[in-house]
């Protein structure tokens, strides 16, 4: 195990990562060539750094559930529920609008953050219990809880958005720190932590082994149930952080915000080299896939392509990449 960076070994080892880097560079070059004056503007990249982290967090959440061969379809519901609960708490503390709400202090904001992340932890824990204790297939368990969490959002709000958050909360989604978007910094921190967790801690390696062969993990004495449970709790926590960023950015929270993120999160995770059958995933791959796709969609948006068309491109992109991978692995 040498620490020396050996490019050739990396290429042999993870062709997928290399492919992603090439893809990102090609997209960047293409977009630059197509509309240099618009694409290369600093503003363009800056707005990306405020937008991308929400999807990035959800993609990592999705990846965490996919490592063990599962899936978490409830991430959007969890994120929105976290934002709504925090919003309702603020409204209870400072009224539904006006300066009292806007000026709520740091302590209250901190409690709001705790409520939101606590929501994610609990929701993730429920998913984990359904999957590991009641042995429900992840896809079915999280379809059920997705309905449940969205349902709770609707019951709490009656449908319309919770509008108006304190300034301190909105700052989480809108300010810059050291010249970089706060959401981006948060995302990078979470990504780095997750990467360390997956590659350097017993829990991370165990998750990878469970995803490779759950039965062998059992016979190797790995506490599979607990590890899988923790992975869903983490997935829930990441989803709730995404919920904080989203509600902070738009100053509102609603039961059906960001529903298109669900598909996109799965796409980013799979494009990033996550094997949906389990056993293989890298945070770096997900970050690269996210970068490639954000460049792609911002480039097309600058060319006045509609968001829908960008969805179309993303979907085709996924299918093309899995096709290429399939033929590469076969040949």
């Amino acid at each position: 195990m040498s620490d020396r960076f050996d490019l050739r070994r990396l290429v042999n080892h993870d062709a997928n990562l290399v492919q992603l880097v090439v893809l990102t560079v090609v997209i960047f070059a293409l977009m630059t060539a197509l509309s240099p004056e618009k694409f290369l503007r600093a503003y363009n990249f800056e707005s990306m750094t405020f937008l991308a982290p929400e999807l990035g967090l959800l993609s990592i959440a999705m990846m965490l559930s996919m490592i063990t061969g599962g899936i978490d379809l409830s991430v959007i519901g969890v994120g929105n529920l976290a934002g709504i609960l925090a919003g309702l708490f603020f409204h209870a503390m400072g009224g539904t609008h006006g300066p009292a709400l806007a000026g709520l202090g740091g302590g209250i904001i901190a409690i709001g953050v705790a409520i939101a992340i606590g929501t994610g932890l609990i929701a993730g824990f429920i998913n984990g219990v359904l999957i590991t204790k009641l042995h429900i297939t992840p896809i079915l368990a999280t379809i059920g809880t997705a309905q449940l969490y969205v349902g709770i959002c609707l019951v709490l709000t009656g449908g319309p958005a919770v509008v108006g958050f304190p300034n301190g909360w909105d700052a989480i989604g809108n300010t810059k720190l050291f010249g970089l978007a706060l959401p981006l910094l948060l995302f990078l921190a979470v990504a780095a932590l997750t990467a360390v967790l997956l590659t350097r801690t017993p829990l991370g390696i165990n998750l990878m082994l469970i995803g490779t062969n759950a039965r062998a993990a059992l016979f190797a004495g790995i506490r599979s149930g607990r590890a899988v449970l923790v992975s869903y709790v983490m997935s829930g926590a990441l989803a709730s952080i995404a919920g904080i960023l989203l509600s902070g950015r738009v100053n509102a929270a609603k039961a059906d915000y960001g529903t298109s993120y669900l598909l996109e999160a799965v796409l980013v995770a799979v494009l990033g080299g996550t094997n949906p059958s389990g056993g293989k995933a890298t945070v770096l791959g997900v970050v690269l896939a996210l970068t490639a796709l954000m460049l792609l969609s911002s480039g097309f948006q600058l060319m006045r392509f509609s968001n829908f068309l960008v969805d179309f491109i993303w979907g085709s992109f996924l299918l093309i990449v899995i096709t290429i991978n399939a033929f590469r692995n076969r040949g």
């Binding site: 082994l209 490779t212 062969n213 062998a216 016979f219």
Partner: peptide, 12 residues
């Protein structure tokens, strides 16, 4: 089926 993680490394 019960002993090995086939796609993982020998070290793992």
């Amino acid at each position: 089926h019960e002993g090995l993680f086939l796609t993982q490394s020998i070290d793992h």
